[in-house]
């Protein structure tokens, strides 16, 4: 049994203590925007925010959390897709298959919250999520655009 604060709502979840947060979010809470990619915190498709910090939810058991920690998933990033990153993502047509993009956006949102004007080097150093289709340059450009810059690839 776990009590989790997800997207501003406290939910009670009947799972084993060692269930990864990812699977509780997907299978018990029913929010499937957060993806399974590797299960070993390598790819970042499962990235959510825990008190604003980008966290790879596939490798954290629900027992590590209590209801005082605010967990935000892609569905809770903004009520209507209006986060500056989501708008930049749409403006630059960033996604290809899209499977990694929830995690990318959540990682980028945590980066911007901590560092509102990241340099290219900051972005390349901080965004370590895997994309196999190859959206990296548009991801980088969209983060810059959301941060108020206009630089293209670099």
């Amino acid at each position: 049994m776990a009590r989790l604060n997800i997207n501003g709502r406290v939910v009670e979840i009947a799972v084993e203590d060692d269930t990864p947060l990812l699977w509780a979010i997907r299978e018990q809470v029913g929010l499937t925007g957060t993806k399974y990619g590797c299960g070993v915190a390598q790819c970042g498709a499962c990235t959510v925010h825990v008190d604003g910090v980008a966290t790879r939810s596939c490798s954290m058991p629900v027992s590590a959390f209590d209801e005082n920690q605010k967990i935000v998933t892609i569905e809770g990033l903004s009520p209507d897709g209006s986060h500056p990153l989501q708008k930049a993502w749409v403006a630059l047509d960033v996604p290809q298959c899209g499977y990694c993009q929830s995690g990318m956006i959540m990682a980028a949102a945590a980066l911007l919250a901590a560092n509102p004007k990241p340099s290219d080097a900051d972005i390349r150093g901080e965004i370590t999520n895997i994309c196999r289709c190859g959206t990296y340059n548009r991801v980088q450009a969209a983060i810059k655009q959301a941060a108020g810059g206009n630089q293209a690839n670099g």
Binding site: G33, T73, I74, W89, V90, D93, P95, G98
Partner: peptide
């Protein structure tokens, strides 16, 4: 623009 972008930015796809 692609027809399938928005839902790939909000978890709905």
């Amino acid at each position: 623009p692609r027809l399938d972008t928005v839902e790939k930015t909000n978890g709905k796809q």
